[in-house]
Design a binder for these strands. Sequence first.
DNA 1: ACCCTCACCTGCACGC
DNA 2: TGCGTGCAGGTGAGGG
Length: 295
Amino acid sequence: MPELPEVEHVVRALRRSVLDRVIVAAEIHLPKLVSPSSASAFSRKLKGSRIVAINRRGKYILIELEKPNARTNDPSTASSLKLAAEQVLIVHLRMTGKFMVLTPDDELPRHAHAVFYLDDERRLVFRDQRQFGIMRLVAKARVGGTKGISELAPEPFGSDFSVDYLKETLSRSKRTLKTLLLDQTRVLGLGNIYASEALFRAQINPFVIASDLSSKRIERLHQAIRDVLRAAVSGNSSRRLNLEDPNGFSYGEAFGKVWQVYDREGKKCFKCGTRIKRITHGGRSTYWCPRCQRR
DNA sequence: ACCCTCACCTGCACGC
DNA sequence: TGCGTGCAGGTGAGGG
């Protein structure tokens, strides 16, 4: 149930463990994972592809693949490598998607919806208990135009995500801050945990209407968003995600970490001692300190 | 154009 | 023990 920092950790772990490997075969056990592509077409396209880069855009994982052109029995095309097809495997983990790497002796776990056989005998497995995760295969040149990715807000650590950008964005919305922070087309990278955490850090009430926020508070919120995400990305680097260790650190329990407000309903605010509140709307919980985050 | 509600799934913790 | 309910870190379709 990853937000941007957890996805970043998955990306780094994938790089450490499968970069430069060739996918010699692929099995898709849950057709809707790759819909609207068919499972067989998807597997066929992946087969023979080398993993040449692994990146992230928002919460999407982008696995760049190169597949040598199939017509290698033509002796006149000695330079067939130049014709390598560049594809990108786009993966979104949604709530429960996870990657793991299995050695030949390992048994396939439950909910293993995709299995990629690598050229070193290992298998890269995608598990997803709730089956919300998605995979798409697109030509490299078309990644930026892919629905879902093309609408994303600027990367939170990039210069495009400026105070001015946030001011402009908030000024045009009548939604509450909590809702707006979850909208990846406005502010990128936060999920339900870090949205609450960022608002606490900025000492701003989650139910304030976006366009009502003062300049001073917008600046605080901007800083808080970056601080919260940065802390989660770097704070966990001491414990690396290891896709090959089933008992190892997984991002779900990443952080034996204590949230400031998330999941702390009824507990004392670390700052002022007031009991943390929670309400649910639209099926999502929002946590806040009614004293530190007054309206 | 915007925003809200619901749907997509499985599994776990809880109360009766 | 079993069953019902609510909840879980994300998004997208569909409708107002």
